[in-house]
Design a protein around this nucleic acid. Structure first.
Lengths: 210, 210
DNA sequence: ACTCCTTGATTGAACGATCAATCTAACATT
DNA sequence: AATGTTAGATTGATCGTTCAATCAAGGAGT
């Protein structure tokens, strides 16, 4: 074929990622991956020693996809660092709406399905989460004194991920976006409270300086 | 046998619930359920038309277990309605710690694994969540004017579930409880902010009345 | 008390389908 | 020729499910 050498492996990874996202890990058969990727079993087992290592490969691949596929779009669309958080949440919301409140977060799904049984996969899921939260923490840092000086921004960045994953889970169960919107509304109320607290802190410092 | 008629069915439900929780739905084979419950396949298919209907049975059974197995313990241990929320979160934390950050919430796991494919199961998962959140909303209502009058308590009760599920997911991925504790700490900061706001609102009303 | 019939529960071997994985042979490029 | 890659039939195990047979228990009729 006229395809370059690494093309088959990339196609396997993309298809596997998509199918794991759509159906879950256990519900996705190797045969289905092969069929949809247009690849024979020999090729798959040439690149991956088994289904479990394919999962590992997918999670490693996902690590590199987060920034270009998700975060760059958010940063391009929204300049304000705090609003970027809600822009990110809205982007996941759009995805949910597009798929009829299905599928949700590909990493989150795998976290609950395979984390207990596959240590290597668990570690990579953790790194995907840490990667996600680290970018959000960058935005929180960029917010400077718009957040209170006492605010633990690493903690808060994890909270953002918590809200997103919990909100998605409930939206899937409900079959509609209301639990998602409710959670985001409450989280915005929290951020607003933090902003007001920071404003009081700033004016107190200003009064001190005067 | 000396066993009453419904004993076999109950044993199947309990074992299936436990195995779905430990391993997930797809990863649990009917054969394993049969073996661990000490039941033959014919008996299972006498009570349930298939694995999918067994899942439905498990979710219906879980509906009735929430209050006696989970919520009653919280209400007995903690009287203050707002603190009951954190007592509930701590109870799930204890469970996670006991199992080495594994398993997590049985309903949450099924939500992400089967909600898309089994409409009847999705609806029951939703009812389990709604049941959980409704009890929490009862506590929020009982908090009276310790929360701001503008506070949407139904929204907030969903937020509590969001925090728990998101926190559990990250704790499983990390293999430790820090993301869980971080999320709860942030949520406590939010509740504290709401309490302060309510206090300001009360004193304002008092000033009006004076 | 005795037999007959029904009912619901249980047994466990067996089924076809599908699972992940393996194998050898062939292909492409260098 | 050597190496890396692909083709695709094939393996044995396991999957969810079926089904004819068995068992225990309880009326109904005599």
């Amino acid at each position: 074929m006229g395809l370059e050498p690494q093309d088959t492996k990339a196609r396997i990874l993309e298809v596997a990622f998509r199918l794991f996202h759509e159906q879950g890990y256990h519900a996705t058969s190797v045969a289905t991956i092969l069929r949809e990727a247009g690849v024979n079993s020999g090729s798959l087992y040439h690149y991956f020693s088994g289904k479990e290592q394919l999962l590992v490969g997918v999670l490693e691949w996902a690590l590199g996809e987060l920034r270009p596929q998700v975060m760059d779009a958010v940063e391009a669309r929204t300049a304000d660092p705090l609003e970027r958080i809600f822009s990110l949440l809205e982007q996941y919301r759009d995805g949910m709406k597009l798929f009829g409140c299905r599928m949700g977060c590909p990493i989150g799904n795998l976290a609950l399905e395979v984390a207990d049984d596959h240590p290597e996969a668990r570690q990579l899921i953790h790194r995907n989460f840490a990667n996600w939260a680290a970018i959000v923490k960058g935005w929180l840092d960029a917010a400077g004194d718009r957040l209170p000086p006492t605010c633990n921004r690493e903690q808060l960045s994890r909270m953002v991920l918590t809200v997103m994953e919990g909100a998605i889970m409930q939206a899937r169960a409900a079959g509609n976006l209301q639990p998602f919107d409710d959670s985001v509304a409450q989280f915005r109320a929290y951020i607003d409270a933090l902003k007001r607290e920071a404003a009081r802190s700033r004016s107190a410092v200003a009064a001190m300086g005067a």
